[in-house]
Simulated scan of single mutants.
Amino acid sequence: MQQAGKLREFLESNDPVASLRLTRVRGSSPRTTGTEMYVRADALWGTIGGGQLEHRAIDAARELLRAGNLSAHLDLPLGPAIGQCCGGRVEIAVTRMSTSDKEHAHAEALRYDAALPEVYILGAGHVGRALAELFQHLPVRAVLVDQREDELEQCGAEVEKRLSAIPEIDIMNAPSQSAFIVLTHDHGLDFLLASAALQRNDAAYVGLIGSATKRAKFASWARTHCGGLSVDSLICPIGAGGSRDKRPAVIAAQVVAEVITALTSETAADHPARGTVSHIAAQ
């Protein structure tokens, strides 16, 4: 989900733009300090948490733009007084954006895009394409990899489609803390790619489509062909959320939840490759 280009289009409108930034959060709140959204008279970008908090802040931003003012400050309790029950309190800086403010916001969006975790979908079959459809809306850089051009062409999602004769090289060249989902058209290739991902020892997630039987066969193969490679960190079956529904879209939904959980765990969040630009992440 690349945001910088779309944000630039939003900010370069002829209409004035206001920034809403959470400058202080006390107690429970739907978003954290630093979260930011942008407001025009006719459009919005991002969110600071929704509900009455956001509605009141948007109204204040649009009033500031109408009046031609430069800044304002809001201090809102997140309780019954505004129809919310979080129980905390937030302070919001409302600012009419200058040209330099917009340039800075765009630069932050570029930094955010560059720091997005990468998710490699290794196989462009039915489930692979269903995964791409979902990941295109999430704060990751999804790469759909296949040796078959005709399968890649069937994917309409806004993700990178990579025709690769040797997908193992794509795995080798991926950044640290990437996620790898292996679901090719060939079990032998599945084994090669899953072992390549596990041998990196720095993946945030390695998943292999299949059953418990396939996992056992892969474990035996890995011991024989990969110097006793451990498969303890391998997720197989993938998306094992308890559902017996085998439709690609349902499997994909379960796997996406699994991968995002792995990418946003406390361990993953401490990694420098994780983006921290929360106002972009909300879009």
Results as ranks from 00 to 15, higher is better:
283 Q>S: 11
52 Q>G: 15
33 T>K: 14
145 V>W: 02
253 A>Q: 13
214 K>D: 08
272 P>W: 04
140 V>T: 14
52 Q>I: 04
231 V>N: 00
181 I>S: 06
240 A>T: 02
14 N>W: 07
211 S>A: 10
181 I>L: 15
271 H>V: 02
224 T>P: 00
135 F>Y: 08
228 G>E: 08
176 S>H: 10
82 I>K: 11
283 Q>N: 08
196 A>V: 01
260 I>F: 07
10 F>K: 01
250 V>E: 08
147 Q>R: 12
271 H>S: 03
157 A>S: 13
204 A>S: 15
283 Q>P: 04
155 C>T: 06
24 R>C: 07
140 V>R: 01
51 G>A: 07
276 T>I: 10
234 L>I: 04
179 A>Q: 09
78 L>Q: 06
170 D>A: 12
234 L>P: 00
131 L>P: 03
274 R>Y: 12
106 H>Q: 07
178 S>T: 10
163 L>E: 00
206 V>F: 03
186 D>E: 09
211 S>N: 09
198 L>I: 12
275 G>I: 02
98 S>K: 05
190 D>H: 00
258 E>T: 01
141 R>H: 15
118 E>H: 15
254 Q>I: 09
81 A>H: 07
36 E>M: 15
240 A>I: 02
152 L>D: 05
85 C>K: 06
143 V>H: 03
148 R>H: 13
175 P>D: 11
173 N>W: 08
201 N>I: 03
75 D>S: 14
226 C>V: 07
99 T>I: 10
214 K>N: 12
173 N>L: 13
5 G>E: 14
264 T>A: 08
276 T>W: 08
52 Q>S: 15
193 L>K: 00
128 G>D: 04
14 N>L: 11
193 L>A: 02
184 T>R: 01
177 Q>I: 07
207 G>E: 00
77 P>D: 13
164 S>V: 11
26 R>A: 11
231 V>I: 14
209 I>K: 02
239 G>T: 03
151 E>S: 13
264 T>M: 11
14 N>A: 13
73 H>Q: 13
252 A>E: 04
166 I>N: 09
123 G>V: 02
22 L>V: 11
93 A>S: 12
109 A>R: 03
55 H>L: 15
48 I>R: 00
236 C>I: 03
238 I>K: 02
167 P>W: 02
128 G>L: 06
130 A>P: 09
241 G>H: 10
263 L>D: 03
105 A>D: 01
94 V>D: 05
203 A>M: 07
283 Q>M: 10
271 H>W: 10
6 K>V: 14
128 G>A: 11
253 A>N: 09
221 W>K: 00
251 I>Y: 07
88 G>Q: 04
262 A>H: 13
11 L>Q: 06
235 I>W: 06
108 E>R: 12
82 I>G: 04
21 R>S: 13
159 V>C: 12
148 R>G: 00
117 P>F: 09
215 R>N: 03
167 P>G: 01
61 A>G: 10
224 T>V: 13
